[in-house]
């Protein structure tokens, strides 16, 4: 039932899907003859990769931002090293390092511990980790500047009311932080969405990989890569609409001046 509903609502190859508008013998048809269904699944992979990376990157970024503001010097230094590395490496290289390196490293570690277990990091997980590392490095910077924008008086007021530090953080600081950091995080989301395209290089069947296969098989490279660009544009537009609504929602209690 749910499945039937999902199939019906699928915006690309569902009953009302865009690719259904093409005749069934065209290159973009959804079925055994066309590439519509392949590309639709690529869109699904791209979006799920970006959505899976987001919470990971946000959480790590928040932790890093806290570390960067700590009074403890060693914690600040450790966080800064992290940011320097993952903002300095090309995303493609980070991806290779995670995809090949983590696998080799973990395997060696396991066999050093005398275990014969094989561990497998697939392209999706490698992409999620690599993009999450990069995303957290950038988002920590956005969050740090958002923290700076919140006056000290807010913490002091919390303390004066006798709130615990965690409560102050949860009820006073974070709601303001979200509002201030949203535009910056929205930008990072757009970048993340585009960076997922790199995962096609290590074999994940995302938009770019699927259109690339179609381009090679059909020899219609311009059309299919053009289509890939269009799909990314549509995803970017949808994202900016959603971000706009989230921003409005987050700013709903703001005093009107």
């Amino acid at each position: 039932m749910l499945q039937a509903l999902m199939t019906w609502l699928d915006p690309l190859c569902g009953t009302l899907g865009i690719f259904r508008l093409f005749p069934s013998d065209s290159l973009l048809a959804c079925g055994d003859t066309g590439w519509g269904d392949e590309i639709a699944s690529g869109v699904f992979v791209t979006v799920s990769l970006a959505l899976a990376t987001l919470p990971l990157g946000l959480f790590a970024g928040f932790m890093l931002a806290l570390a960067k503001q700590s009074k403890e010097k060693s914690l600040r230094l450790a966080a800064d090293i992290y940011t320097t590395i993952f903002r300095g490496l090309p995303e493609l290289l980070t991806l290779f390092l995670v995809y090949y390196g983590a696998q080799i490293g973990l395997q060696n570690l396991l066999s050093a511990m005398g275990s014969s277990t094989t561990i497998e990091i697939n392209a999706f997980l490698a992409g999620m980790v690599a993009l999450g590392l990069v995303f957290s490095a950038y988002s920590s910077e956005v969050l740090v500047s958002a923290f700076h924008a919140i006056p000290n008086g807010q913490y002091e007021a919390g303390a004066a009311l006798g709130l615990r530090r965690s409560t102050t953080m949860r009820r006073i600081i974070i709601p303001q932080l979200v509002r201030i950091a949203l535009p910056g995080l929205g930008n990072l989301w757009m970048i993340l969405l585009k960076e997922t395209a790199l995962v096609s290089v290590i074999g994940l069947a995302d938009i770019l990989r699927q259109t690339g296969i179609a381009a090679r098989v059909t020899r219609e490279a311009f059309m299919f890569f053009g289509l890939a660009c269009l799909i990314y544009l549509v995803l970017a537009m949808l994202s900016s609409i959603v971000i706009h609504y989230i921003e409005r929602w987050a700013g709903r209690d703001e005093a009107r001046t």
Partner: peptide, 22 residues
């Protein structure tokens, strides 16, 4: 053209631990 069904299944974020290999 139904490769994607199993590719999707395969690309779910799993840290597969398989004992004993081959």
């Amino acid at each position: 053209m139904r490769i994607q069904k199993f590719m999707l299944a395969a690309s779910a974020a799993t840290l597969a631990l398989t004992m004993g290999a081959a």
